[in-house]
C-alpha cells in the first residue's frame, strides 16, 4: 500500500497552528499535523492529560483546528465511547480519535482502553509514545525502555518496555498498527485504512522526544528513523489479526541488516549510564520482541 498517497494530494490546511507552545523538535506536534493531513475535518479529538494539553494552547488562545474534548487522565477511551455513541444516535459523521500518551494508554488509562477495545466501540486510539511522563517532568512509565534514565530512574530503568501493541492484538480488535513520526506517509496511510473500519482501532505512534530523551531538537526524525533501522521499533499493521510487517521495517526482519543499537542509544542522553552488559541485555530484548511478533506473521 506504500505509494498509495502522494504528498501533493494531502490537504494544505494546517490543523496545528504555528506558534503553539510545544518544545522545539516536538514529535507530538509532527504527529498532530499528520493526523490533520490524514483525516481532516472529520476528527473529534479526545485528549487526556499530557503534553498535548499544553500544545493546544492556553485559553482563550487555541492552536488547533480540531474540536478537542479535554478529559481527566484515566477517562479518555470511555469519553470517546460516549462521543461515538452520541454521534451514532444523532446520525452525524465523526471520526472520534483518542490522542493519548504512554501514561494514559499503558498505565493509568489502561483499564478504560482495554474496556473500549473489548466492547468494540467505534473509535481510534492513538498512543503517542514518548516513552516517559514528559508533561510532569520525565518520569518513567511502563513504556520507558530498559536502561533509560528518567527522573524516577536515575541509574536507568531496570524493567523492560511493556508490549502494548501485542496486548491490543490479543483483544482481537479489527485494526492494530504501529507507526513512527519518522515515517509520515506510513502513518497517514494507516490512519486512512483504520478510518474505513468500523469498531475499535489502535495505532501506536513512536514519538522520540528531544526534551525527555536528551537529544538535539533538530534530530527528532533522525532518532525516529534510527529506532526503526536498529530494530528497536518495528512498524507493522494487523487487519483482523493478520500481522504484516510494514515496508520500512521489512529489511530488518533479517537481524544482520539492522544498524547497531549502539548507534541509536549513543545520540541520546537518557542512555548515558547504560553499561556494555546492559546494552547486551537490551539487544536480546529487541530480538525477543522480533521473535514474538514474527510468530504472528
Amino acid at each position: 500500500m506504500v505509494g498509495g498517497i502522494s504528498i501533493r494530494e494531502l490537504p494544505r490546511k494546517k490543523y496545528l497552528l504555528p506558534g503553539n507552545p510545544s518544545c522545539p523538535g516536538c514529535p507530538e506536534a509532527l504527529g498532530l499535523r499528520y493526523l490533520g493531513m490524514a483525516l481532516g475535518d472529520r476528527v473529534i479529538l479526545v485528549v487526556p492529560a499530557g503534553c498535548s494539553t499544553v500544545i493546544e494552547g492556553l485559553a482563550p488562545n487555541y492552536s488547533m483546528r480540531f474540536p478537542i474534548v479535554n478529559v481527566p487522565f484515566a477517562s479518555a477511551d470511555a469519553v470517546a465511547s460516549g462521543v461515538a455513541a452520541a454521534k451514532e444516535v444523532l446520525g452525524e459523521d465523526a471520526v472520534v480519535v483518542v490522542w493519548a500518551g504512554d501514561g494514559a494508554t499503558a498505565d493509568i488509562g489502561f483499564a478504560t482502553l482495554s474496556g473500549a477495545a473489548e466492547r468494540g466501540d467505534n473509535i481510534i486510539h492513538i498512543c503517542v509514545d514518548n516513552e516517559a511522563y514528559m508533561n510532569t517532568g520525565i518520569q518513567r512509565s511502563s513504556l520507558t525502555p530498559y536502561g533509560a534514565w528518567t527522573t524516577t530512574t536515575w541509574t536507568g530503568k531496570k524493567e523492560r518496555k511493556k508490549d502494548v501493541p501485542l496486548i491490543m492484538l490479543m483483544h482481537k480488535v479489527p485494526y492494530v498498527a504501529t507507526a513512527s513520526v519518522g515515517y509520515p506517509m506510513d502513518f497517514i496511510e494507516k490512519l486512512r485504512r483504520a478510518v474505513l473500519i468500523k469498531g475499535f482501532k489502535y495505532i501506536h505512534l513512536h514519538a522520540p522526544c528531544p526534551t525527555g530523551w536528551r537529544f538535539d531538537p533538530s534530530l527528532t526524525v533522525e532518532v525516529a528513523k534510527l529506532a526503526v533501522e536498529t530494530g528497536m521499533w518495528i512498524l507493522f499493521e494487523a487487519v483482523n489479526g493478520k500481522v504484516k510487517i510494514s515496508p520500512p521495517s521489512l529489511p530488518y526482519r533479517d537481524r544482520s541488516r539492522r544498524k547497531p543499537i549502539r548507534d541509536y542509544i549513543k545520540i541520546q542522553g537518557r542512555f548515558r549510564t547504560l553499561t556494555d552488559e546492559e546494552l547486551k541485555k537490551l539487544e536480546s530484548m529487541v530480538d525477543d520482541v522480533w521473535d514474538t511478533l514474527t510468530k504472528f506473521t
Binding site: 474534548v69 478529559v71 469519553v79 460516549g82 462521543v83 444516535v89 474496556g115 473489548e118
Partner: peptide, 27 residues
C-alpha cells in the same frame, strides 16, 4: 430507543455519559 454502553468501571460510566452528553444527547 437508547444506546447502552456497558463499561468496565464507574469512572468510565460517568466518563462515557460525559462524552455522550457533551456531544449532544440526553445521558
Amino acid at each position: 430507543d437508547a444506546k447502552i454502553v456497558r463499561v468496565e468501571s464507574e469512572h468510565s460510566a460517568l466518563a462515557t455519559v460525559f462524552g455522550a452528553a457533551s456531544s449532544g444527547v440526553r445521558a
